[in-house]
Simulated scan of single mutants.
Amino acid sequence: MSSELDNLKNIGVTARHSLSAEGKGEIVKLVKYLFEKQKTVFVTEYIYKILKKIIHKNSTTNSSYNIIENIKILTKKNLKNLDLFIFFGGDGTLLSAVHQFAPDIFSVPIFGINGGNLGFFSSVAKENGTSALDKIFEGKYTKDVRMVAKGELQSEDKSVVETIYSLNEITIHHAGIARLRNLEVELSGEYLTTYKADGLIISTPTGSTAYNLAAGGPIVAPQIKAFVITALAPAGFSQRPIVLPSHKILKISVDSTMRLSIDGQKYTEIKNTQSLVITEYAIPVTFLRLKTERYYKNLREKLGWG
């Protein structure tokens, strides 16, 4: 990434899969716009195939062919060269990209154009995408910094079996027959409680408006560094959601094999011989926002508040 954030030269682009004909047209428009701005453009393989098909079919100009010849395929290896990562779609589009390119993607500023259904991450409508980018390239933006959760699956000897990263939430839930499980939680070495529940949601403030909210957990402002633990169908009314400081180390143990769902994008298992250790990842993710954007206005509109 460039040392100066205002020098946004290398631009990455991704979009949700199964784009409509209209959505594909918007992607072509976006990429052409970036080339007109003399940007170096990196796209995912899915986007490259769309561009190649549409541009070759509909254009006979040399400039259009030059786009295909000069565009670059985005990979984990060249991701660090990006100055800005643009996603076109809803929240699922960004989360999919995060898990495709984590953890390196957290070092790249992100800008979202809402071409999907949910847009907590992207509040700029697709018809305003290029005009919004004009302002971004002029430096008329603010930085919205969000914490990222890091999870380590550890064996009994504390060796790390698998490392995961989460922007929204890590969910522990049953992998087979639905029944109550015992999930023991420690907080920086201190015993907290043993939940008797179908599972647990461990959410970041960003994810507090997602699965956590649907399960009855609280909304936590994104500027607050915290974890939220919300039990899924707890056996007792006393096991309420709890907000914990993010500098603490969460350790969760289970009494039988359960499934881990990370941001609804990636799945793995936790066995009763393993522990899940969750900490705040050292590198947060940075979103670029227009100066006119307001978090609470967006929240009010998305949740249908009066």
Rank of each mutant, 00 (worst) to 15 (best):
N81Y: 11
N81S: 10
L82G: 01
D83R: 02
L84S: 02
L84F: 00
F85A: 06
F85I: 09
I86A: 12
F87Q: 05
F88S: 10
F88C: 09
F88K: 11
G89K: 05
G89N: 07
G89A: 07
G90S: 06
G92M: 10
G92R: 09
G92Y: 09
G92I: 12
T93V: 13
L94I: 10
L94P: 01
L95M: 15
L95R: 10
A97Q: 03
A97V: 05
H99V: 11
H99D: 10
Q100E: 15
F101R: 09
F101L: 12
A102L: 10
P103G: 11
P103Q: 08
P103N: 09
P103T: 11
I105L: 14
F106I: 03
I110F: 04
I110A: 07
I110N: 08
F111G: 00
G112P: 02
G112I: 05
I113G: 05
I113N: 04
N114P: 00
N114I: 08
G116L: 09
N117F: 12
L118P: 04
G119L: 07
G119I: 07
G119Y: 06
F120I: 08
F120C: 06
F120Y: 15
F121Q: 10
F121A: 13
S123N: 15
V124E: 01
V124S: 00
V124L: 07
A125E: 15
A125H: 14
E127C: 12
N128I: 08
N128T: 09
T130N: 14
T130R: 13
T130G: 05
S131F: 15
A132F: 05
A132G: 03
L133F: 04
L133D: 02
D134N: 09
D134T: 01
F137I: 06
E138F: 00
E138W: 03
E138R: 08
G139R: 05
K140D: 07
Y141T: 03
Y141W: 05
Y141D: 02
T142Y: 08
T142W: 04
K143C: 07
K143V: 04
D144T: 06
D144A: 05
D144L: 05
V145R: 13
R146Y: 09
R146T: 06
R146G: 05
V148C: 08
K150G: 13
E152T: 03
E152C: 01
S155I: 11
E156V: 15
E156N: 14
E156H: 15
D157T: 14
D157K: 14
K158M: 10
K158D: 15
K158Y: 12
V160I: 06
V161F: 09
E162P: 04
E162C: 06
T163H: 03
T163M: 06
L167G: 01
N168E: 05
N168F: 11
E169P: 00
E169C: 05
E169Q: 02
I170P: 00
T171H: 06
I172Q: 00
H173V: 10
H173A: 11
H173M: 13
H173S: 12
H174M: 12
H174W: 14
A175Q: 12
A175H: 12
G176F: 07
I177M: 12
I177T: 12
A178C: 04
A178T: 11
R181L: 14
N182V: 00
N182D: 00
L183M: 15
V185F: 00
E186L: 11
S188L: 01
S188G: 04
S188I: 01
E190S: 08
E190A: 09
Y191M: 02
Y191N: 02
Y191F: 13
Y191C: 03
